[in-house]
């Protein structure tokens, strides 16, 4: 069974979305998904089931083959590459499994980057807000360090700060603890939830961990390219 919600209030809405990589067949089939503002949803599933692909489509990094994807009420299909990018940088923050920090920038500069790209703030304002965001993830004293001088957990915290700093409506997190040991992963995940709650944005999280998923508002399962709402299925049975 697919998940449905009121698209009008959704920060993210997908209707009948299908997608496949060239030469690899369909990865996603007829996906329906709606995320309300402030809602926190987890997607679980086997490796290769299409979880990350769903996230990429949600961010507008790949165009859907069929169906519609709406981000903050705007259909991505009607937008060109530049418009999709503008929408993404205003509405979305992304946390990757392998951090994806820019190695040539310091931690503080990494966090400032979305502000420079997406806002009209001047340099001093950008620096101030990025500093505050970095402090919020507990790295106030490490802003001048380059990514390779930080531990994995610290790098992911910088990535979380970077994803949140420009106040997006939606955070897309792809296995954010996948590259961390369990203790660090737990701490980082707690921090992510705390920050999402504090900023009031929606969260779409892809994870292998049922434990982590269980701490969110809803859990969806991706299986062979189909998205299923576990809670709805449970209540149906």
């Amino acid at each position: 069974m697919t998940e449905r919600n009121d698209p009008g209030a959704s920060v993210l809405a997908m209707h009948g979305v299908a997608f496949g990589y060239p030469g690899e067949g369909r990865v996603l089939h007829d996906v329906e998904l709606a995320l309300a503002r402030g809602e926190r949803v987890a997607i679980v599933g086997e490796s290769g089931s299409g979880k990350s692909t769903l996230l990429h489509l949600a961010a507008g990094l790949e165009p859907a083959d069929a169906g519609t994807v709406e981000l903050a009420g705007q259909a991505l299909a009607g937008l060109d590459e530049a418009a999709r990018t503008r929408l993404r940088r205003a509405q979305v923050g992304i946390v990757f499994q392998s951090f994806h920090l820019i190695p040539t920038l310091t931690a503080l500069e990494n966090v400032m980057l979305p502000l420079e790209l997406a806002t009209e703030l001047d340099a001093a304002q950008r620096r101030e807000r990025a500093g505050a965001q970095l402090a919020a993830v507990g790295l106030a004293d490490k802003g001048g360090r380059e990514p390779e001088q930080l531990s994995g957990g610290e790098q992911q915290r910088v990535a979380i700060a970077r994803a949140l700093v420009h106040r997006p409506a939606l955070i897309l997190a792809d296995e954010p603890t996948g590259n961390l040991d369990s203790r660090t992963g737990e701490a980082v995940f707690g921090l992510l939830l705390e920050q999402v709650r504090a900023t009031g944005c929606a969260l779409l999280l892809v994870t292998h961990s049922d434990d982590l998923a269980g701490r969110l508002d809803r859990v969806l399962r991706m299986q062979d390219g189909h998205l299923q709402d576990l809670a709805a299925e449970a209540s149906a049975t």
Binding site: L61, E81, T85, R86
Partner: peptide, 16 residues
């Protein structure tokens, strides 16, 4: 390429 892709995912336009 990965770095550029990250920048793009953060919102840097193709022209950028």
């Amino acid at each position: 390429a990965r770095e550029f892709a990250t920048l793009r995912s953060l919102g840097l336009l193709p022209g950028g």
